[in-house]
């Protein structure tokens, strides 16, 4: 389980090894504060949606899921995409209402990021990888937690780097978006080191 967590968080980091959620990574990494809020939002949504999608997929959509109802040959797995995205949108909406009601300060801090997460590819990618790699329910919880924490760490590290680059005497070149990509590339190279990590 720890092995899976470490692998999801560092070795197979969704942002730096699978390029998922890069749009949000670019948009939300100007300041460390916003990046931290974004990371919290991603973790919350991910930890809810991946196990929920697991239940939906294996309870309703997988081949032979309807055997108990006398329809063993029914295979609805082609509907998984539309169900996943619908469930993610619904989860985000519910989470927004709950946070607004019980944790107004956190809801205020997350602001626009929460609704935008619906179209974050890291979230949908997490659910798709869960199906693709045949995780069990506990594994999918650990995987969701690991990969979202890894993503959150990556966005905060990038924000810290960008705050330094955009120092007081910033010139034309340092504001270029190309430089941000180079920074992400260097981070991604650093993360390659983790691929040598062996855990028993």
């Amino acid at each position: 389980m720890i092995d899976l967590f470490i692998r999801a968080a560092f070795v197979e980091n969704l942002a730096l090894a699978f390029f998922l959620g890069i749009c949000t990574l670019l948009g939300g990494s100007r300041r460390v504060g916003t990046a931290a809020g974004l990371g919290v939002a991603i973790t919350l949504v991910m930890v809810f949606t991946v196990p929920l999608n697991y239940l939906v997929f294996h309870g309703l959509l997988a081949p032979a899921a309807w055997t108990w109802a006398g329809m063993p040959e029914l295979d609805l797995s082609h509907l998984s995409l539309i169900c996943f995205i619908g469930l993610i949108a619904a989860t985000v909406h519910v989470l927004e209402l709950v946070l607004d009601r019980f944790f107004p300060a956190l809801a205020q801090a997350l602001g626009i990021f929460l609704p935008l997460i619906t179209v974050n590819c890291a979230i949908l990618g997490g659910s798709l990888f869960m199906v693709d790699r045949h995780y069990s329910l506990t594994e999918s919880v650990v995987f969701a937690l690991g990969s979202s924490v890894g993503w959150a760490l990556a966005v905060m590290a990038l924000a810290a780097i960008r705050e330094r680059i955009d120092g007081p005497d910033r010139d034309e070149a340092s504001r270029s978006q190309a430089l941000v990509f180079v920074a992400i590339g260097v981070m991604s190279m650093g993360y390659l080191v983790f691929s040598g990590v062996q855990l028993a």
Binding site: Q177, G185, V186, S188, L192
Partner: peptide
């Protein structure tokens, strides 16, 4: 073949086109 190359190449294109 590794992920960083993708970032560096896109960085090049972003710079060139902008």
């Amino acid at each position: 073949h590794l992920p960083p190359a993708g970032f560096f190449l896109i960085a090049g294109f972003v710079w060139l086109l902008q």
